[in-house]
Design a protein around this nucleic acid. Structure first.
Length: 183
DNA sequence: AATGTCTTCAACCGCCACCGA
DNA sequence: GTCGGTGGCGGTTGAAGACAT
């Protein structure tokens, strides 16, 4: 595949978005939608690349963005989902209405990661999908095996210094069911 | 008050998957 | 089957603000 230049194209603006640019993007999308991100900036008269427009819209301008601080429940959800899914930020964000993958990723990296690292020695139990599958006894799940989850488990294992008990708690089973069984 | 260090998070980059020609 | 275009994702960066000395 040919290497794309994206924002390196001549004349493209980079860096923080101005209020005016936001306004242009919002009104253009409200009027014309965003069927083609690459063509959008040109149509809207923005000196941004399509990727940048898409990111700005998805993460900050969409009307259904909740914004603000993460509630305790949300934090709890992220922790649990991350145990199961690893760094699948978009999948995790999809389970948190009004939150974006970037938001979740940033929150994890700045807050929860430390929290987990601090707590891991004591009681941050975790499991692997394989173990979950084994405990569930459902053979159909084997086909859903995602290599990324395996690697995430490896990372977790490393980051947690192998302190996890690997026991499947009821809570984990619940979240496992939510994800895997609901597809 | 001035300076250095740390933290946060918006934005960018590179890669990959998917789709149509 | 392959190629190019596009959307989407996760990792990373760097500016700005907060905090410590």
């Amino acid at each position: 595949m040919a290497k794309r230049l994206c924002c390196e194209s001549m004349g493209m603006r980079k860096g923080p978005w101005s209020a005016e640019e936001d306004h242009i993007l919002i009104s253009h999308i409200q009027t014309h939608g965003h069927a083609n991100w690459r063509a959008l900036p040109k149509q809207a008269g923005l000196l941004r690349c399509g990727k940048s427009c898409r990111l700005r819209w998805i993460n900050y301008l969409r009307p259904d963005i909740k914004g603000g601080k993460f509630s305790e429940e949300e934090q709890d959800s992220i922790l649990k989902l991350h145990q199961i899914l690893g760094n699948k930020w978009s999948t995790i964000a999809a389970r948190l209405p009004g939150r974006t993958d970037n938001e979740v990723k940033n929150f994890w990296n700045t807050h929860l990661k430390k929290r987990v690292q601090n707590a891991n020695i004591s009681n941050y139990s975790y499991t692997t999908l394989q173990e979950a599958q084994a405990s569930d006894g459902s053979s159909s799940l084997a086909s859903n095996k995602d290599p990324s989850i395996v690697s995430c488990d490896t990372n977790l294992e490393q980051s947690m210094g192998n302190h996890g008990s690997c026991q499947i708690s009821e809570e984990m089973e619940f979240w496992y069911n939510v994800f895997i069984k609901s597809g």
